[in-house]
Measured scan of single mutants.
Amino acid sequence: KFNKELSVAGREIVTLPNLNDPQKKAFIFSLWDDPSQSANLLAEAKKLNDAQAPK
């Protein structure tokens, strides 16, 4: 279960257009550290992506 959630969340995070590479890497490392938090980490990444969207 975690492997699928981890890969789905990881793929989504790397495609978020408004995150820079260090931010993406930080989220990916957090996913590896605790795969059970993949849904929460993906939600946080999406929030940050939205907040950094060009206005």
Rank of each mutant, 00 (worst) to 15 (best):
P54D: 09
N18L: 01
L6D: 04
A53N: 07
A45L: 02
P22M: 15
K24V: 05
E12G: 04
K46N: 09
K1Y: 14
F29P: 02
D21S: 08
S36E: 09
E5S: 12
P35E: 04
I13G: 00
L6R: 04
K55V: 15
S7F: 13
S36A: 11
E12H: 06
F27Q: 00
K55L: 15
I13M: 03
F27N: 01
A45I: 03
L31A: 01
K55C: 14
Q52E: 03
S30D: 05
Q52I: 04
F27E: 03
A51Y: 07
N20D: 09
T15R: 15
S36F: 07
A51I: 12
S38P: 01
G10T: 15
V14K: 06
F27R: 00
K55W: 08
S38F: 13
A39E: 14
V8L: 14
W32Y: 13
F2P: 09
T15S: 14
A26W: 14
N18S: 03
V14G: 06
D34E: 06
N3C: 15
K46L: 09
S30H: 13
K55E: 12
D33L: 15
F2E: 12
E44G: 05
L19R: 00
D21Q: 09
R11C: 15
K25P: 02
F27V: 00
K55H: 12
T15C: 14
I13T: 01
F29C: 12
W32I: 09
N20A: 08
K47E: 08
A39C: 09
A53G: 09
Q37S: 07
N40Y: 11
D33M: 14
A9C: 06
D33A: 14
A53D: 10
Q37E: 10
K46H: 08
A43N: 08
S38W: 15
K25S: 11
K1P: 12
K1R: 12
V8Q: 12
N3Q: 10
A26S: 08
E12S: 03
D34C: 12
P54G: 08
G10F: 15
K55D: 13
L19S: 01
P35A: 05
N18Q: 02
Q52S: 05
N18C: 07
A53V: 06
L42V: 12
N3R: 10
E44Y: 10
F29T: 13
S36D: 07
I28K: 03
D21F: 11
N49A: 02
K47T: 06
N49K: 00
L16Y: 05
P17V: 07
L19G: 01
W32T: 07
V8A: 13
D33K: 14
K4I: 13
D21L: 12
A39Q: 10
D34T: 08
V8D: 14
W32D: 05
F27D: 02
L41I: 15
W32C: 13
P35L: 03
D50K: 07
P54L: 11
V8E: 14
A45R: 00
A51T: 07
D50R: 06
L16E: 01
L42K: 02
K25W: 15
N49W: 03
A45F: 01
K25M: 14
G10E: 15
T15G: 14
N3W: 14
R11D: 07
A39N: 09
S7V: 14
Q37L: 07
I28N: 00
I28G: 01
S7H: 13
F29M: 12
D33V: 12
D21N: 09
F27C: 05
L31E: 03
A45P: 01
Q37W: 03
R11F: 11
K24C: 04
N49V: 00
S36G: 09
A39V: 10
E5I: 12
A39G: 08
S7T: 12
R11G: 06
S7C: 14
K24Q: 01
Q52H: 03
A53F: 05
K55G: 12
L48Y: 03
V14E: 13
E12W: 11
S36H: 06
N3K: 08
A9L: 11
A39M: 11
Q23W: 02
Q23D: 04
P22F: 15
L48C: 05
T15M: 14
G10R: 14
F2W: 15
N49F: 02
I13R: 00
Q37I: 06
I28H: 01
P17G: 04
F29N: 11
I28P: 01
K46E: 04
F27S: 00
K25F: 14
A39I: 08
L16M: 11
K24I: 08
A53M: 06
I13N: 01
A45V: 00
K1N: 14
L48A: 04
F2R: 05
K25E: 13
A43W: 06
A53R: 08
I28F: 03
A45W: 03
A26I: 06
P35T: 04
S36I: 05
A43K: 09
N49P: 00
D21V: 09
P22I: 14
D33T: 13
F27H: 01
P17R: 04
E44I: 11
E44T: 06
I13S: 01
I28A: 00
E5L: 11
Q52L: 07
D33Y: 13
K1G: 12
K1F: 13
E5F: 11
E12V: 10
S30K: 14
A26N: 07
E5R: 07
E44F: 08
Q37T: 04
N3T: 10
L42D: 00
E12F: 14
D50C: 08
D50Q: 10
A43F: 08
N18W: 15
N40A: 13
L41K: 04
V8R: 10
K47M: 08
T15E: 15
V14W: 15
S7R: 07
F29G: 06
E12R: 04
P35S: 03
P17Y: 03
E12Y: 14
L31C: 04
N40T: 15
P54N: 10
P22S: 15
E5H: 11
E12A: 07
I28D: 01
K55I: 14
D33I: 11
